[in-house]
């Protein structure tokens, strides 16, 4: 059965989407990913979509759902490597992916996750109410 590989990268997970997504594949990915987040106690998820040159509202919603699920499991999601043409299409469609963080490449995405991880740890150790 077709599966999208999930790689562990330090405290984070890396998902690279390079094929066209369909319902079954999305469900499998969500299953696998939530499973792995819990299993590895990952604090961040990087979703690489640089291989996609076409994104529709379905993929947009899927990314939003995955980010939501990961957030509940205390992992932050960053979408990386969106193509310029894809970004323009999404904006023209009125989908600006609210609530999803984005980065240009893996390095930037990792920086972003590390920074937010530090912040969260500080917040926690300072005894603040985590927001």
């Amino acid at each position: 059965m077709e599966r999208i590989p999930i790689l562990k990268l330090g405290p984070f997970l890396l998902v690279s989407i390079q094929v066209d997504m369909h319902d079954r594949l999305v469900l499998t990915l969500q299953d696998d990913l939530t499973e792995r987040i819990v299993q590895t106690r990952a604090r961040g998820v990087l979703i690489d979509i640089s291989g996609l040159d076409m994104v529709d509202s379905f993929i947009g919603r899927m990314l939003g759902n995955i980010a939501g699920m990961a957030r509940i499991l205390d992992a932050e999601t960053v979408v990386i490597g969106m193509q310029p043409s894809v970004a323009i299409t999404l904006v023209e469609l009125g989908l600006s992916l609210p609530g999803i963080r984005t980065a240009l490449n893996i390095d930037r995405g990792m920086d972003l996750l590390r920074a937010s991880l530090e912040e969260r740890t500080e917040d926690f150790s300072a005894g603040n109410q985590a927001g």
Binding site: V79, I80, M82, P84, V86, A87, I88, L90, V91, E92, S96, L97, T102, A103, L104, N105, R108, G109
Partner: peptide, 12 residues
């Protein structure tokens, strides 16, 4: 705003 949103999607 569209331009800003598109740039944000690219991570900038």
């Amino acid at each position: 705003l569209k331009t800003v949103a598109a740039a944000r999607l690219m991570g900038a």
